[in-house]
């Protein structure tokens, strides 16, 4: 019991610490690729610190939902993060839910964010909520097909079991079904984390914004919670991809050396995946909103192909 609590605490600390770093790394890398110097690697930490100390303005039209939402976003993200294997093949709270619970917990956070977007009465908020719910709904089946492909391979929806099964067959990730499922999940990752070509995380007050439009009215500590929660959500979706498809370096149990090597591998793999995201972001232009369903249809098709190819291999 004590041990489990310690593991949960360690993973919680890592989640809170690594998430802003990944955002900072992606921003920095993107800037370098666009021949800009960009903000420092640790800028997100400074931003969070600054926001936490700032005062905040609550819109007069907003109800209690507006104040409750940042907590929901933050808490569901860290709880989902504790259900995903991070530095060991075991996740601390794996018993409380597997991959389906992770997806639905993130869904709860999104549900509340979308309501908060409508709560202020600003038309930007409604616009963001409407688009976010549409895109996430269309991303859902693709995500589920890819997840099912992995879950069927492991015969379980528990992420610890999935990762252990993947660790067991080291080079399994080169199988066509795995590669197709990876591609599908990668597209979903782009859509869910609001990156180009689906959404642009770097814009404020543009008519094309989606996620930013919903949280436009937030400021101060609430904004910090939402931003941090968003960074953790991005991190855990990346971990989902990394640890289910490239499980090397993870040990089956928790041990001090295992955790250290696991962490080193995790950071390396996160860096590699971030590079892929940055490449996609810099080489693509943002899509029109009504082209996004096509992208997600591609993801769905890839997921269906992944499933079909489990027949062949």
């Amino acid at each position: 019991m004590m041990e489990a609590a310690l593991q949960a605490l360690l993973q919680l600390m890592l989640l809170l610490a690594v998430a802003p770093l990944v955002s900072g790394f992606i921003k920095k890398l993107k800037a370098r690729l666009q021949t800009r110097r960009g903000p420092g690697l640790f800028q997100p930490y400074r931003d969070l610190y600054k926001l936490l100390r700032k005062g905040m303005v609550i819109p007069g039209t907003a109800s209690w939902l507006f104040t409750a939402t940042p907590y929901f976003v933050f808490l569901t993200a860290i709880l989902a993060g504790l259900m995903i294997p991070m530095v060991s093949a075991e996740a601390p709270l794996a018993l409380f839910g597997g991959v389906l619970a992770v997806v639905y917990l993130l869904g709860l956070g999104r549900f509340m964010t979308a309501l908060a977007g409508l709560d202020t009465g600003s038309s930007f908020g409604g616009l963001g909520s409407s688009r976010e719910m549409t895109i996430s709904a269309l991303a859902e089946p693709a995500m589920m097909l890819a997840i099912f492909t992995v879950a069927i391979g492991a015969n379980s929806t528990s992420l610890a079991e999935i990762v252990k099964a993947a660790v067991g067959q080291q080079w399994h990730f080169l199988a066509p079904s795995q590669m197709l499922a990876f591609a599908a999940l990668f597209l979903v990752l782009i859509a869910e984390t609001g990156r180009i070509p689906v959404d642009n995380p770097a814009t404020h007050l543009e008519l094309t914004m989606i996620h930013e439009a919903m949280i436009l009215e937030y400021s101060g500590p609430y904004l910090a919670l939402i931003e941090w929660g968003g960074a953790i959500k991005q991190l855990l979706l990346m971990m989902l991809l990394i640890n289910c498809f490239w499980p090397f370096g993870l040990e089956a149990g928790w041990s001090a050396p295992g955790v250290v090597t696991g962490l080193v591998y995790l950071l390396l793999k996160l860096a590699a995946l971030s590079c892929a995201i940055v490449l996609v972001e810099t080489t693509n232009a943002k899509m029109r909103l009504f082209r996004v369903p096509e992208l997600l249809a591609v993801a769905f098709t890839l997921g269906a192909l992944a499933l079909a190819s489990t027949f062949l291999f």
Partner: peptide, 10 residues
């Protein structure tokens, strides 16, 4: 082995 949830736990 095939997957668990706990709504109370959540």
């Amino acid at each position: 082995r095939s997957g668990t949830i706990s709504t109370v736990g959540i």
